[in-house]
Amino acid sequence: MTDTAIEFVDVVKCYGAVTAVDTINFSISRGELVTFLGPSGCGKTTSLRLIAGLELPTSGTVRIAGEDVSTRAAPDRNVGMVFQSYALFPHMSVIENVAYGPTIRGSDKKSAIARGHEILSMLGLEGLGKRLPSELSGGQQQRVAVARAIVQQPDVLLFDEPLSNVDAKLRRRVREEIRDLQRRFNLTAVYVTHDQEEALAVSDRIIVMSNGKIAQIGTPRELYESPSSRFVADFIGDANLIEGQIENGAFRAPGLSLPLPATSRTGPAVISIRPERIVLKKSGSDGKVKSASYLGSRREYRVETAYGTLLVSAPISAPALEPGEEISVILSPGGYTLLSDA
């Protein structure tokens, strides 16, 4: 028994000339919810399908529960998947849908149906067993899809953009529901989304992907506070990217010098500063307010400085600033991150 549920070692997937997934490595522990996050076409769905066995890797190794399953097709893996379109069988009733997996895997019909009803009631769907999927609401359909995916106690549960068919207003509720479910059943889950806010909200850890490669792996907080590359800094939340030089253990740009105690690098470099980590003070000569907007819960400013235009997010409790005002800019240590790519 290992604690690793899923492991990818140097996995590559090509479709003809297109490399959809390019040499990726990661491992996911039991009971963890990990998200693949990245822009459209970066290889998230492909990675998910590689876990499910719906695609086999062109090269590299996929391990599930410690076993090498690289050449094993989907039916020979124990993986549950919730599809973007739910993919409920329209010619079978809800209970037939849910009992389908156990029946196929050899349970007798009676116990499969009993097990199906059990899961349905755990998900608040009791009494709907006899209906056809077309007679359910969208949210109910999704829960039937989840019930169907977890009824066989899979090694891992996969979600491909589960909120894309859900009303914008309901997304928050549904994603909390999924997170709650995953915790309640102690499931290992992999979740695909292109929405960074959704990813930050539900994940234990996030795998950020870009062009078929992994850009960074980390907890939501790690990714937000210390992105390692321009791509991640930019993709997750808002970031001010400032270009400059590292000299004598400090980052220098025109009119700016920030201590970097832990680096031995020199030469050109980029740092990322989150808008809410910048403090503006009235009167000073660091910069000038170019524009200000009131957003209800906070204020946003564009500030012109010698080292570039900054986006700043200020708490509503701080004194309001007017466009044209000369101000001083305070960057606290720990409020900025040195990016690994120059």
């Binding site: 409920l88 329209p90 608040g124 077309s134 969208g138 529901e177 309640r184």
Partner: peptide, 18 residues
């Protein structure tokens, strides 16, 4: 006649109470 293919209507999901 088959049940219509899964319609993707986004009606409100009733929350299950855990």
């Amino acid at each position: 006649q088959l049940g219509r293919r899964t319609q993707l209507q986004n009606t409100a999901p009733a929350l299950p109470t855990a």
